[in-house]
Design a binder for these strands. Sequence first.
DNA 1: AAACGCGCCTGCGGGC
DNA 2: TGCCCGCAGGCGCGTT
Length: 274
Amino acid sequence: MPELPEVETLCKSMAPFLLDQVIVSVDVRDTRLRWPVVPLDFTKWITGNRVVNMTRRSKYLLWQFDNEATIIFHLGMSGRLGIFSDDTTIEKHTHVIFQLRDRMQVRYRDPRRFGLVEVVPPNELKTWFRFENLGVEPLSKDFGYKYVANLLKKSKKPIKNWIMDAQNVVGVGNIYANEALFRAGIHPTRPAYSLKNDEQRRLVQSVKSVLTAAIDKGGTTLNDFRNAQSEPGFFQLDLSVYQKEGQLCGLCSNIIEKIVMSGRSTFFCPSCQK
DNA sequence: AAACGCGCCTGCGGGC
DNA sequence: TGCCCGCAGGCGCGTT
């Protein structure tokens, strides 16, 4: 599912429910995710502890505990986290179940198993290896014109690949890369170094605006994204180019095209994006 | 060193 | 109806 707006939506919808709750036990039903889940880590650091903070970094969701331990989640392509009563049917591909008080549970489900559920021991979060090479947060002031200009000039990558590279800026996946470039009026195959000053500014602004708009709509639900309450998002209704090959551009009425870049479907308006 | 392609998985929709 | 194929929102790693 998940790019930044979806993880942010999940975080916002889950935090009010889970904050201050104690994890009574953790049931790892299948350890086979992208990296193996380690059941003993939950026994050692999580069981009996209370969630005191919930945040997002890049496309990771973080639960921080009163003992300074953290659980980090990545949803991969098909991961979901949802709140359930423990008497409801456990869906297929539910790999980890967090038991709470009052017969409530948080369930991690991930059919394709590209995701991650990992315990960071107390006080190691700041130096945790998964965050070592991450670039700036796109909605922070760090992601600004100066930062982008300095990096773009050093890169020969197509601009679409550049904004999807988490070493530059995190959280932008295929959907929002396509949509941001449409908003900026920039063709996805343009080499990063070739962007003019005004295009660099529009790129920064467009990445911020499309992510913010998607968060406001609760994310994009194409197939299976759901928030903590299993509700869909609605930004799919506001997409301009993604999966709209052959349809008319909303700005100029030319036909939206599809190409493949690095194996990913890429949609753009050949008239609006130069 | 940077950039690309592959592979990890399952499910779904379209074409025949 | 059922089978086969292509495709899917991510990301780390190996190769060039």
